[in-house]
Design a protein around this nucleic acid. Structure first.
Lengths: 184, 184
DNA sequence: GCAGAATGCTTTAGGCTTAATCTATTCAGG
DNA sequence: CCTGAATAGATTAAGCCTAAAGCATTCTGC
């Protein structure tokens, strides 16, 4: 039971060389197979993420009339009670600074976050949760965790660990590649 | 070696019952651990997808002055030379119909796709690649595959298969959950 | 036939996102 | 000091995306 070939069924078993008319396709079959493998993996990764993301967005919307970016920003602040600067938020959320400006504007208007002057640097300021923000976020976070647990409950504890490990490796490699290209 | 507790290092090993002051935290530690596990897995999945997506978007932009949704739409059409109806595109791309309308409008303006009347149903039509669209897409697809292969090259062939299998299971479970909630 | 439901697509309003550009402030060398 | 570079945020224009509403056409059951 070392390798039950878990996805063997995916290729329609086109016995090699069985169709002369398709010789051109067969010619590059080795490298093509490798490339298709990567492509399929990427598409599946994307699909999974989108499915979960859509699920969560819908829930946030119907339960709390809010959005994922807003929730994400609040959750970053919740992990940093002293507050975060705009560029720190931008880096952690993996979005551009202009984007953060808009979201903070909204949340500040709703009194869920506040901008605090940074005495040491008059260009910058700290964004921090208000009391109301903490209360509202705690409520949302509780349900949010339940949604995630539920959506991932199709995998066993062990599979969770395996997936986490594989994604760690993938993430590390992505960071290396993209850092090389965009040294920033 | 049946369960090497792969994520054991992540919690600061609070020996059970060793700290009376933390009794409340320890009480729910089992379920809390499960929840954090799921949350961390989800965040990592999201990060990986975003890293790759951003990489690809940047490349498409700098190399072909195009965007991922446009590329995605062309690639769907490339797999269906006879053309696809709008709602089929919408389903395959996992976006709403109104969105597809806008992207097809653009691509049609650039003469990369064309709308063909559907004699059997005058409400609908087929969207199909033009010759120019085929040519342009072939060029892009070639490079795109190379980017994906490169970005996934940090994992071995075997790890690719494992990841693909785990994601298949996850995807299946997501589909079941979201279908139940939104029968559509 | 025909009324009502369903379907295919578009439009609209609003939020997210980016890249590019701008202003204000800080920093680094001379 | 003072000038130029770098940094922190905000702004802008343009594109993606959604949900909801609207229009035209087709289907269904009577």
């Amino acid at each position: 039971m070392l390798r039950p070939t878990p996805v063997a069924a995916e290729r329609a078993a086109p016995r090699r060389g069985a169709r002369d008319a398709r010789a051109r396709e067969d010619r590059e079959s080795a490298s093509r197979a490798g490339e298709h493998r990567a492509l399929r993996l990427w598409l599946r990764l994307l699909t999974c993420t989108q499915l979960i993301e859509r699920h969560v967005r819908g829930r946030l919307r119907e339960r709390f009339a809010t959005t994922l970016p807003r929730f994400d920003l609040l959750s970053q602040l919740e992990r940093h009670p002293a507050g975060l600067k705009m560029n720190a938020l931008s880096r952690r959320m993996m979005v551009t600074g202009g984007n953060v400006t808009g979201i903070v504007d909204q949340l500040a208007r709703e009194k869920l976050v506040e901008r605090l002057a940074e005495p040491a640097d008059r260009r910058a300021f700290r964004v921090r949760l208000t009391r109301a923000g903490e209360r509202v976020f705690a409520e949302m976070a509780r349900e949010h965790e339940a949604w995630i647990v539920s959506v991932l409950s199709g995998l066993s504890r062990r599979e969770h660990a395996e997936l986490l490990g594989l994604l760690a490796k993938l993430k590390q490699h992505c960071l290396e590649i993209t850092e090389k290209k965009e040294p920033r």
